[in-house]
């Protein structure tokens, strides 16, 4: 994506519908009741894509909301991570779940290598460092 969207491109579904694609590449006007009934469209087409999240990040940034944009960029990295993995890593980020710092560093490594998620990886590394300093690896249950 070379073009950066601005607030004038928002709402993207109304202003720039040609940019919007479902999880399997369908245009919005292809995801219809008829298509669902015919089995030509399904729940996978109703997923947001990493591209859509990055576009929303561009709009947030243009509107002066960098923190929100950062979140959308992290979400873009997460969009293709399986649900089970997301919940597994979430659980490890909760206090006392990971036994030590290395567990979180391993999560970060997988995010970087397996899921091409460098932002999320850095985020987890930051957590690992803070958890270690604040003693959050103590056993809870």
């Amino acid at each position: 994506m070379t073009e950066k969207l601005s607030v004038n491109d928002y709402p993207v579904a109304e202003q720039r519908p040609e940019l919007v694609r479902g999880g399997r590449g369908k245009r919005l006007d292809e995801i219809t009741l008829d298509a669902l009934q015919a089995g030509d469209a399904g729940i996978e087409d109703l997923r947001i894509t990493p591209e859509a999240l990055r576009r929303q990040a561009e709009i947030s940034r243009a509107a002066g909301r960098a923190a929100l944009a950062d979140n959308f960029e992290r979400a873009a990295e997460m969009a293709l991570i399986p649900q089970q993995t997301i919940m597994e890593f979430y659980e490890l980020l909760r206090p006392g779940r990971a036994a030590d710092k290395q567990v979180l560093l391993d999560v970060a490594a997988r995010l970087r290598d397996e899921f091409s998620a460098p932002r999320m990886a850095a985020f987890v590394e930051e957590a690992a460092e803070v958890y270690a300093r604040r003693g959050l690896f103590k056993f809870r249950y």
């Binding site: 947001i48 999240l53 992290r74 990295e77 969009a79 890593f89 979430y90 985020f123 803070v130 959050l136």
Partner: peptide
Amino acid sequence: ENAFIDGDDTPWSKAWLAAAYASRG
């Protein structure tokens, strides 16, 4: 910090959820 831990989360775990919700639209 103690209330947060008592609530069984940290700012990072909650931020993880924030991104997770966005990643599902």
